[in-house]
Design a protein around this nucleic acid. Sequence first.
DNA 1: GTTACTCATGGCACCGATAACATACGCTCA
DNA 2: TGAGCGTATGTTATCGGTGCCATGAGTAAC
Lengths: 339, 339
Amino acid sequence: MTEGTARTRQPSMTDVARTAGVSAQTVSRALRGSPNVNAETKRRVLAAVEQVGYRFNSAARALSSGRSHTIGLVLLASGGYYSRSAVTAGVEAAAGEAGYAVNIATIAALDTGLMERALSKLADQGVDGFVIAVPLISVTPKIEDITRDIPTVTLDGSRTAGARVLGIDQQEAGRVATQHLLDLGHRQVWHISGPDEWIEARQRRQGWQECLDAAGVEAPPPLEGDWSPDSGYRQGQIIAMIPDVTAVFVAGDEMAFGVIRALRERGRSVPDDVSIVSVDDIALAAHCFPPLTTVRQDFYRYGAAAVDLLLRGDDADVDESVASVSLSVRESTTRPRSG
Amino acid sequence: MTEGTARTRQPSMTDVARTAGVSAQTVSRALRGSPNVNAETKRRVLAAVEQVGYRFNSAARALSSGRSHTIGLVLLASGGYYSRSAVTAGVEAAAGEAGYAVNIATIAALDTGLMERALSKLADQGVDGFVIAVPLISVTPKIEDITRDIPTVTLDGSRTAGARVLGIDQQEAGRVATQHLLDLGHRQVWHISGPDEWIEARQRRQGWQECLDAAGVEAPPPLEGDWSPDSGYRQGQIIAMIPDVTAVFVAGDEMAFGVIRALRERGRSVPDDVSIVSVDDIALAAHCFPPLTTVRQDFYRYGAAAVDLLLRGDDADVDESVASVSLSVRESTTRPRSG
DNA sequence: GTTACTCATGGCACCGATAACATACGCTCA
DNA sequence: TGAGCGTATGTTATCGGTGCCATGAGTAAC
């Protein structure tokens, strides 16, 4: 390089201290808002920070304090891009507010080895906590080791050593969806669930089952998708071949898109022939054809609540507010023809 | 706590060194894959790592080496959750492969102040580089300062001091989409663009304009949305009121959903009355009704390429492969009635 | 056989903040 | 008046790697 001025190192606390005429320790205290700092001193420090263009060095802080002020977020690459995106935003917002940064690790598939590697990588990065937004299909000793050392919140109800679980009542979502169809007069409600590894999927299915039980209806065998619209399409083709199906509860909006398409291609109209209700209420649910009746989930708040739980640990008021679900009734559901 | 053994500190390189019977420096070299380490020594070191349960401390590394092996990703909370999600995955995958972690910062809106804060926050975290996936609506001195010090790749073509630009030819996308409609026999093509602050939006509009110019068609005034399905719906309502519209190029799939809905509600059928083509090819594009003809963008590779460019700086082969666009022809476009 | 050079390894200072401890000052109260 | 205490500030060691330089062994070249 031919630059005239050599690229000098970033100013450090010592530089600020010299400029402000105090010790580095006082600068540290002033910047962290320690109570025992004179107001006038603090002002001088802040002025010096501006003057020398000081930028905080979080690596040094992490090294000396042992805390990185970073949390690790584990996501699944496939499956539900809307929720992933919204959860990420919620996590990041809540973390940011608490002065934490967010480090992400995406695993390509639900594989224990990949999970171990992801957690390991984040642990190496020195995260202070984990938010795990994918199911832990199996908890290996290695995973237990890591989550025992580092506070963890799981979002889907998986349990591992020392992890807190943010319990959302997915069963309720399944119940609300199914009851809506029964209330419309449907005699039977079919179900296309998410992958069985996901506790969310299991809980929604359970809610469906319970609701049918309570109504004295024998539940038909559930079909299983993988959250993707393609899988919904495939399962929808099966549904389309079964006569007398008038109502289907699909475990996720994106799958529901595929189901509706499959039904339409087979000449079954939604909602005239078959009513469809699902869960999520993604942004496109209101704009597709027909607009989707769906149980709303607030993924953003879900993610934010996970961080609150992780950092503050106040289970109580978190769970209450996040757990609520609400039904957005649109045009993909209606009374059965002969109902 | 009543634990028998006090929670001791994590093992460090010194511990590994002692166990392996070498110096800490040799451990460091062995772990970083330095060429000048005896194979046998390396084996001993790796065994010792296993034995003592050593975990790398990246804060220490960052402090002493001055590089954090972390890159910062700036996203916009609203607007295109599919692309956000896919870009994030691509960035994370490419970064992970190169041994880098990803730190995210989401800005709630396209606001210069928020952008400054996001960059500043990531800079404080000590990121080695930025991938900025939102438009820089205005480049303030503060933003310039930060991006001058830290390598930056912008994804939408915004320019700022020292930033590399990953140039995807969005104009080509606009051209391909528009030409498809002309080829089908449409005499006129309307356009609903993205927000003018986005270079992507401007380029796609330019492509549309050029294509019409080349065909000797006078372009109608473009309408403008904000990428959201709701905005598509609003603009679609306007389009629906204009007689003789037979073809619309919508700048994004999510907006196209809203446009189609608005047209349908006004009794205009897609594609029989109006053909719709858009850009992105999100997962749901194939499953909505009617299935959407759209120009495919590979956001995942886009994100990955940004990281490659940032870390390796080999512009050449990156641009070529990513820039390509391809049209997915589905059922939302057809010949005009009297065409 | 000395020089020269490579390879494998060790020693030590240092990155920049913070924890822990020390100090200085001012004030209250016996 | 001096013990006792709280507040504001300074001093020093330390966190755990890495950069730089030194060292010794082995080997090729003259």
